[in-house]
Every structure is written in C-alpha cells, then in structure tokens.
Write a protein that binds this DNA or RNA. Structure first.
Lengths: 192, 192
DNA sequence: TTCGAAATATCGTTTATCCGACATATCGCA
DNA sequence: TGCGATATGTCGGATAAACGATATTTCGAA
C-alpha cells in the first residue's frame, strides 16, 4: 500500500498553490513574486523552496495537479480510443482551454507553453495505456508512437479551432474526422 | 512589541477550533470525542494535547476566543457605563445567547455554564476598567465590587428575560432600569 | 551607468507537528 | 460482572515548517 502523505505537506502545498492561483487572477505571471506567494500563503520562503524549485516549478505543478485535474479526469473516463471518444476528448480540450483563458486572462499567455507540454504528455500516457489494451498484439513501441501522434494531432486541432472564429465545434469535428477514421481504420485493417 | 505568533500555531488552533465548532452543530458536546475532533481537523492527537489540556479546555477557549468575540467586541465599544450603554449591553447579551442557542442547539445546555463563567468574567473586567476611568477618585477595590455586581446583575437579567416568553425587550428593560438608575445615581451623588 | 532597495536562494538552528507505541480508562454488549 | 473494542493521554524520535542571517541577483530610479 502506498505510504500516506504527511498532512502538513498536503496543507502547506495547498496553501501555496491556492495563493498562487488566486494571485494569477489578479496579476500577470511574470509580475508575481515568490514574496507575493509566500506572504499570501502565510508560508515561509524556505518552506516554499522545500516544496518547489522555483516559480516555474510551482506553475507546472499547479497546472498538472490542480488546474488540469478536471480535464484529465474527463479524458480518462473514456477508457478507449475510437471515433466517438476522440470527438469527446477534443471537446473537453476546447472547453478546458476556453475556461482557463477566461479565468486567468492576464497570465494565460505565460501558461500556454507549460499547459501544452503537460497536457500532451498526459494525453500521450493515457492513449498509450489504452492502445496497449485495445491492440495488445501490436508492438508497444509502435503503439506509443501512435499515441504520440494522436495526442499531438488532437492538441493541434484544438489550438487551431480556438484560433478560428468562423466555425462551430461540430463543423470542425467533421473536417477532422476523416484523418481520425483513417488512422483508426488502418490499425483495425492491419489486425485482420 | 508583542512577539508574533508562529503561523503554524495559528493555523493548527484554527483547524481544531473550526472542527470543534462544526461538530458542535451536529452532535451533543458529550458525544464529541477527541478522536472526532482530531480527525475532522486532520491534526494529530499529540498536537491537540500540545495546544489544549482536554476537551473542556478547548471548549473554554473556543467560546472565549471565537464564539464570543463578536459580543465582547460589541460590549467593549461603549467605553463607559451609563443608563444608555447598560441597555445596549443587555440587548447584546440577549441577542448573543439566542444566536448561540440556535446554532448549537444540541450542545447549548453543556455550553451554558462555561459561557456564563467566561462572559461574566469578561464583563467584570470591562466594567472595572471603565469605572476606574469614570470615577477615578474611588478606591479601585470598591469599583471592582461594583463591576462584579453589575456584571452578575446584567447577566442574571438577561437569563431571566430569555426564560420569560411574555415580555418584550423594551418592557423588560423598563422594569430593570430603576435598579440600574439608582445604582448609577448613588455613585454620582457620592461624588458631589 | 550607478546605486540603493527589494527579491531570491540557501543555510543552520529551533519549534511545531507527525507517527507509532504503550499504558490506562471508558464504553457497550452479552 | 466480565470482556473486547475504542478512546484517552503521553512519550520519544522523526519530519516539516519557521526564523533570522547571509550572499547574490534583479529591479527601478536618478
């Protein structure tokens, strides 16, 4: 059984992360200082450095452990990769990006690169796990490559869609489905 | 300048006290265990005993530092003892008792003795301080006795009023004012 | 460009809190 | 009344968090 985490650690990290999230709605990321964060959290600076390497490390962890929890959870629920779940995942990504862009308008630009890195990594991990289950006769390396390509493709599509203001979600999904279908169909044909 | 309190101490005491207050709205005081409190607060039992002697010590401190903060603050604002402020203080006591009786209905009976002890002590301290300022030519010991009598009298009146359901606050105040006026007038006449 | 103020990052020491263990007390049920 | 389960209260050792100090870096204004 996994060792339980010291409650003090849980409390302290939550104080720091909550303070950081709150500050992010008021200031741009680059204007937020370690001093701001530690004062708002009522946590000592040395304690901050005990938990996080620096402000960027905090950002990374806040995004992956707090901000993106919901979207990762939504994505994970599907448990397999097919045309339907790909569409649903695409919608989750769009909804999440819109929400975060609205909540932290000032810092969103600073967050985007980190969000992209973490989200693509998470999607890749999730897809790899699913594909290994779905097509267990394939080489794991090949499935991993497929997962990488799928996660980048989906993410790219979501970013592209958000930048275009002249199309509905359903219309965009219709345009991207042929590539999705061919990708999945190729796999299924190879299996026969 | 007063030494600042360690933030961990502030946080931990707040966790324990908040957990206790919350539990008091759900369970009778005697049914609340140290185990209940420490689990709800996510604080270790040894830490609880580091801050409080036992459950009764916690109760006492919660009542004096948290539950009664508002009423003590209201009373303290008057800064002197006269017919007008006595009436206002009487009303504060009644309002406070009614509120606490509603909030912690189940445990109120258990709390009453401790509340009474603490509130009377606080009133006595406040009145003594005021009387020393108002009638600085009097012996401090004499003023202290006056403050004791006034605080007990006011508290007794408030308790009595709450037990009678057939009288408005204003009516009750009218009945008690002769004793208040005579007490205050006696003091003023002696001064001339 | 210079300079003082402010922030950063780290260190050693102290304090608060945690954990597991233990002895004792209390509770609830048969 | 007896007994097993649960709660209480305390202890020693370990860990997390605080404090104050320090050297260095960054910032902003003159």
């Amino acid at each position: 059984m996994e060792k339980t985490i010291d409650p003090r650690v849980i409390r302290t990290r939550k104080l720091i992360m909550d303070a950081f999230i709150d500050l992010s709605t008021k200031k741009e990321f680059k204007e937020i200082t370690i001093k701001d964060i530690t004062q708002a959290a009522t946590v000592n600076r040395a304690t901050f450095y005990y938990h996080f390497e620096d402000k960027y490390d905090l950002l990374k962890k806040v995004l992956s452990e707090d901000v993106m929890c919901k979207v990762i959870s939504e994505v994970s629920m599907h448990e397999m990769l097919n045309e339907e779940t790909v569409q649903s995942i695409f919608k989750s990504l769009i909804q999440f990006q819109s929400a975060i862009a609205n909540q932290c308008r000032r810092s969103y630009e600073a967050f985007m690169p980190t969000i992209e890195t973490i989200l693509k990594q998470e999607l890749q991990n999730i897809f790899t796990e699913w594909l290994i289950k779905q097509w267990s006769e394939h080489a794991v390396e090949e499935l991993r490559v497929g997962a990488i390509m799928m996660s980048w493709a989906l993410y790219g599509a979501a970013m592209h869609y958000l930048q275009t203001n002249d199309m509905s979600q359903e219309d965009y999904i219709q345009k991207m489905m042929p590539f999705i279908s061919n990708g999945l169909k190729f796999r299924q044909e190879w299996m026969k």
